[in-house]
């Protein structure tokens, strides 16, 4: 397989708060990923981060229906 390394910044649209990482990635792999993820897919999963934060703060006794 021919490999082509590109700067990860090319895939910034998949991240909520992209950072200049200077990480190089395989173009073929990441392009395929970007083409296959659903519209609006981003990392991190913000809703999940909120749930994790709430659980860590309050344990599992919080009102789960609000999450």
């Amino acid at each position: 397989m021919n490999t082509l390394k590109v700067l990860g910044d090319l895939y910034n649209s998949m991240f909520h708060n992209p950072i200049e990482t200077n990480v190089y990635v395989e173009h073929q792999i990441w392009s395929k990923i970007r083409a296959n993820v659903p519209d609006g897919y981003k990392i991190p999963d913000k809703k999940m981060m909120d749930i994790i934060a709430k659980f860590i703060e309050e344990g599992t006794s919080s009102d789960l229906s609000k999450l």
Binding site: G8, Y11, F15, N17, P18, I19, T21, N22, V23, V25, E26, I29, W30, I43, P44, M49, A53, I56
Partner: peptide
């Protein structure tokens, strides 16, 4: 192939 870019972009969020 996957994790370094994710880790680079998530570093602040992963701290907690």
């Amino acid at each position: 192939e996957l994790i370094p870019l994710v880790q680079g972009n998530l570093a602040p969020a992963l701290n907690f």
